[in-house]
Simulated assay, not measured.
Amino acid sequence: MKMTARSDERQGLWYLVPSASILTVFWIIPIFMVFGYSFFHFVYGMDPHFVGLYQYQQLLISPLFWQSLRITLIFAAAVVVFGSTLSLIFAILLFQGIRAVGLFRALFFLPYVMPVVATSTVWLWMFQPSVGVIDRIFALVGLPSTIGWVNDPNLALISLIIYTIWFSFGFTMLLFMAGLTNIPGELLEAAQVDGASRWRQFWQIIWPLLSPTTLFVVVVNTINAFQTFTQIYALTRGGPLNGTTTLTYLIYQTGFNYFHFGEASATAVVFFLLITALTGFQFWVSRKAVYYGG
Rank of each mutant, 00 (worst) to 15 (best):
I98L: 13
L69F: 09
L124P: 01
V81Y: 00
L93T: 12
A100V: 12
S120P: 01
L94I: 15
L59T: 09
T121D: 08
Q128R: 15
Q58F: 04
S62K: 00
F108V: 05
W66D: 05
L94M: 11
L64P: 02
L73E: 05
A78C: 08
F90W: 11
W125M: 07
S84F: 02
I89P: 06
L94R: 10
L124V: 04
S130Q: 15
L60R: 04
M126E: 02
V117L: 08
P129Q: 10
P129K: 10
P115R: 02
S62Y: 00
Q128H: 14
F104N: 12
L124A: 10
W125T: 09
L107I: 14
V116M: 03
G102Y: 06
V81T: 08
A78L: 09
V122W: 05
L69S: 07
T72F: 09
W125D: 10
S84C: 12
I92L: 15
I61E: 05
F90G: 05
L64I: 07
A77D: 09
L107H: 03
A118R: 00
A106F: 00
I71F: 05
T85P: 01
W66E: 01
P63A: 13
M114Q: 06
S68C: 04
L64A: 06
F82A: 13
V101D: 14
S120D: 04
S62A: 08
I89D: 08
L94N: 11
I92C: 13
V122R: 03
G102M: 07
F108S: 07
A76T: 15
M126C: 10
L60V: 09
Q58P: 07
A106C: 00
S87F: 00
Y56H: 09
I98Y: 02
Y56D: 06
F65W: 08
L59N: 02
S84E: 07
R70W: 08
L103V: 15
V113S: 05
F127C: 10
R105I: 11
T85G: 14
L110M: 10
L107A: 14
Q67F: 01
L94K: 09
P111T: 04
A118H: 01
L124D: 08
A100P: 05
W123Q: 06
V122Y: 03
A78E: 01
I74Q: 10
V80F: 00
F109S: 08
F109E: 05
S130D: 15
F90I: 15
L86F: 13
Y112P: 06
S68I: 05
L86A: 15
V116P: 03
A78H: 01
L93F: 12
V79P: 04
A76M: 14
L94T: 13
Y112I: 06
F104I: 12
L110R: 03
Q96S: 13
Q58Y: 06
L88V: 08
A77H: 04
P129I: 04
F95R: 12
F95D: 12
A76E: 10
Q58D: 10
L110P: 03
V81S: 02
I74K: 07
F95Y: 11
V101M: 14
F95V: 02
V113E: 00
A76W: 08
A100L: 14
M126W: 05
G97A: 06
V81W: 00
L93I: 14
W123F: 15
